[in-house]
Design a protein around this nucleic acid. Structure first.
Lengths: 206, 206
DNA sequence: ATGCTTTTCCATCATTTGATGGAAACCTCT
DNA sequence: AGAGGTTTCCATCAAATGATGGAAAAGCAT
């Protein structure tokens, strides 16, 4: 039995899926309170009540967006895992950084939503209950930073967090940082990768 | 001639300063749209119109908050600069991390506001015009990463950004990360410092 | 075509939220 | 005490926003 969200993903041309796609971007850009159902409906080219017909209340749509984003992220990380499996350590880090940044630069709303979730609170309590799997242990394991997926040392978890967030920061802050440093997008992307490798690789190459 | 903000800072018991203090926390917690003037007034124990009497429109108050926060941050960084001046490189980084994280853990709304500013957009256009000095060149210089304050290489700027943001992330994400890893505050603080040093020091110790 | 279901839109509501006018309270100076 | 200015609060407004009922439109099966 398919959940509504799975149904929407199966048929990406369905109205529900179209709304979800727009909502991802708008929520990512303006945050939960900054985004209004009217903005989303307008950008999707539909009436606001059509949005409510498909998704119910605003917090439900937001919940759908978060779920969708984290599903994407999980799938992508699994792919990264497959690619780096068995390679020497230094290569693993480099490939992981390249793949992840490329993917996130193409889907910046993912980084936005993840960071807003970490740092921003919401007046709407129903938002907090969303179940979100954490990939930290998977990353720790596939990077060879721990032997047992079930028992990742806390120190390692924090190292992974620092890593992931560094990446998200550069994606999510692109607008701000790029105009601050006056760079074209292309240069920004390559310099970000460079910087991430510069910082992350020495730390883990003990 | 003192600006209104300077006036408010000079007399921290003034109503205007009290409002500013509460507004810092509330804006930092909920973001621009998530915070309402009513929430701020209520937390300050005053009527909403008193708030408007002192600060004018919401965006003006927000502007005041941002200005105030960045002033604080600048002062603190100057203090850090003074302390690390002349010390060997490895020490400088360690001291800077300790001092900065201690300070930000005591004033987490600073990290929140800085990050929200980087990553979140606002429907209100008047927000973007706020003048904010960037400390990147100062940091780069005092860390010995560049010879000329006026011409910081772009690569170095990105390295500084990565550094600063890593710190902000752990401060701002404390609630989320701590409950995720089930740590007491004390343990969290010391492990964060540890992690930051683990990641940042090797990169810059060429 | 016809009847049924699903989807979309228009009109509208209730609440929230930013904002203000004016009366009351407070302060200050003489 | 009392005049004059400042500050605070109550009442209220207008616009924005989340949400819905019901009519119209579009699908779809027979």
């Amino acid at each position: 039995m398919a959940t509504p969200l799975e149904k929407a993903r199966k048929d990406p041309d369905s109205m529900k899926a179209r709304i979800l796609k727009v909502a991802r971007r708008v929520f990512g850009e303006y945050g939960y309170h900054g985004a209004t159902t009217r903005m989303i409906a307008e950008e999707a080219g539909i009436d606001i009540s059509t949005l409510y017909y498909h998704w119910g209340e605003k917090s439900d749509l937001y919940q759908g967006v978060v779920q969708d984003v984290f599903d994407d992220l999980r799938h992508r990380l699994q792919e990264v895992e497959r690619v780096i499996h068995g390679r020497p350590f230094a290569d693993r880090m480099e490939i992981a950084i390249d793949m992840t940044t490329d993917y996130l630069f193409e889907n910046p709303e993912i980084s936005n939503l993840v960071l807003l979730r970490y740092f921003g609170k919401t007046r709407d309590e129903s938002i907090l209950d969303i179940y979100v799997p954490d990939f930290i242990s998977d990353i720790a394991y596939s990077m060879g930073l721990c032997k047992n997926k079930k028992a990742v040392p806390k120190g390692v978890s924090l190292q992974i967090l620092a890593m992931i967030n560094s990446i998200h920061n550069f994606i999510s802050g692109e607008g701000f940082f790029r105009s601050m440093l006056t760079m074209e997008r292309e240069e920004y992307v390559s310099r970000v990768k460079e910087t991430l490798k510069f910082i992350l690789i020495p730390a883990f190459n003990t």
